[in-house]
Amino acid sequence: MSAPVDDPWARLRSRTSARIGLGRSGAGLPVRANLEFQFAHARARDAVHRAVDFEALAKDLVPMETLTVDSAAPDRATYLRRPDLGRQLAESSEATLATALPCDVLFVVADGLSADAVQAHAAPVVRATLPLLDGLALGPVVLARQARVAFGDVIGHRLAAKLVVLLVGERPGLTVTDSLGAYITHAPEPGRRDSERNCISNIHPGGGQSYEAAARKIAWLGRQGLERGVTGIALKDDLPATQTLPE
């Protein structure tokens, strides 16, 4: 479905990914433009509703130890309607986290709103980050079904982690359906505000942040957070500009 060769909009299209110069059938969209839109929306819907294969993800993370838990939202329909349940641990998962495993850094992988992002990018981001956290004590990677960002606070608190790195599937757009986000929270406990986290968003290979770039930022924020005992707005103020991060 590429543009015609003599596309008069070609130069302008190079400056924006907006759907410009679509042409029209009467006042309607031409069939091809309409199908392209519908396909993009269908892919985004599928990314939201598909389930992450957490067994496969656990295999991707070997030799790291993993634990799989559920949020209190039993299914996708409930998850979408009840953000509060997506931040709580299911009773059936209480036993899995019964014993504290004190550590400096705990990775939590939450499915969030894009199964595609989590399936494809969570393991590579964890793998790219690990060497940069050398010398710190790491907990098991917790894989969380029907879970939101603040779910990491609950898990981190239970396992007595000093800092949580939560990877989550971001809400899919029409252009990118597999974007991963990373949230770094010091001293995780229920009730942490969003202003107490640092966020790295837009992690995906299709023009977003690369695994390596994301890993460098996660490691930098994680180490700074542990050293200074704070994450969020207070830490963000001191984050070096992108170009000064070690490449």
Binding site: A18, R19, L22, L29, F37, T175
Partner: peptide, 13 residues
């Protein structure tokens, strides 16, 4: 109204 119903900055339709 946005181009093609797709807001590429705010990521919604």
């Amino acid at each position: 109204a946005v181009p093609g119903a797709d807001d590429i900055m705010l990521n919604y339709q």
